[in-house]
Nucleic acid binder design. Sequence first.
RNA 1: UCCUCGGUGGCUCAAUGGCAGAGCGUCCGGCUGUUAACCGGUAGGUUGUAGGUUCGAGUCCUACCCGGGGAG
Length: 377
Amino acid sequence: MKKYTVINTEGNAKTATLETVHGTIETPVFMNVATAAAIKGGLDAKDLEDSKCQVALANTYHLHLRPGDETVAHFGGVANFMGWSKPTLTDSGGFQVFSLAKLRRIKEEGVYFASHIDGRKIFMGPEESMAIQSNLASTIAMAFDECPPAKAEKEYIQASVDRTTRWLKRSIDAIDALNAKPTTLNPHQLLFGINQGGINPNIRIEHAKTITDFDMAGYAIGGLAVGESHEEMYNVLDATIPHLPKDKPTYLMGVGTPENILEAVERGIDFFDCVLPARNGRHGHVFTAFGKLNLFNAKFERDDAPIDPACGCLVCKSHTRGYIRHLLKAKEMLGMRLCVMHNLYFYNNMMGEIREAIKSGNFANYKKQKLEDFKGD
RNA sequence: UCCUCGGUGGCUCAAUGGCAGAGCGUCCGGCUGUUAACCGGUAGGUUGUAGGUUCGAGUCCUACCCGGGGAG
């Protein structure tokens, strides 16, 4: 079961549903990042539900290292492990090829990592990544790819993209073999392919055409928001998205700011994920309808307003900026937790507004108004 | 009363007689498929007081003030 149904479109923007064995996902959607089967900042699955989260994202590399994917399988997969009853997506470990640059070696067969936990040597290639993701029993698995740095030379990007294509074929073969022996946890794990090519439009387009030849459940655009400018990112989206199938979900990996998301939805993206709302929340930065606030700022010491008076989240219903600032300054864990809860709700709620706007043909106005409001404060 | 140790940024402390510093705190900024409750920056000093020696004193000398410890 992988039925992707477009409900309405406005220009290139689309709102759709993706039916999965673990429930229906309404897009555009923002997935909440639970790397090690936990939202950092002390949130659990119940908090995710309160935050209007539809999909939780976990990481292959991290869960393979600790507690081990077979241990997660013992608990019935990552969703059961963390008490989450809705769809999950697992990242393949490809991003760690980028972020753990000092701890790895890339070869044709895969990547040799030194564990960031204990230095132990581990190997991960497409087959290993798929086997781990199968144990994690995520709703959607990601192909094993390489995410080259934005500033990499064109020659390196091309060689990297070609290798990612070969890894994609191996990822597909591996997941097909695993799906041939379905488990009750996940009768048919979906696999999304990943487009790469740095900020080079031609490489991006050629790679999009190449991976479109494979019948993937969805197509992701990776390797963005890794140091390039917003303009470069939008140019890549403009060039690439027209060459991806219209009848499949698209996923812009690792993006981004609320502004980035509005721009990408306008260009036709369905799925997003980003650590920003959780990480910035832990650091006391919160998102509001009128821009970002840094709750560490002295001006909030005696501010008795909620983070965002227009917000409907549990935090804004019960707590003041002044109280949360105190918690943050006192290093009380509750301060981080409240900020993360608010930020996740802000993102997920905005995605709901986006879906409604597209359904009613009002997205262009909605986007324009939001971008204007975010500049406020 | 005597002996002794000490007095340096808001706090805790560095600085062979040679540019007065650090950590924390303050204030501000950054964070984009998480190695990140993290990283970066700002401001803040008549070195207890008054003299002296010296080219040069936080540092050596004298007196005093304040604090800790000890003796009586």
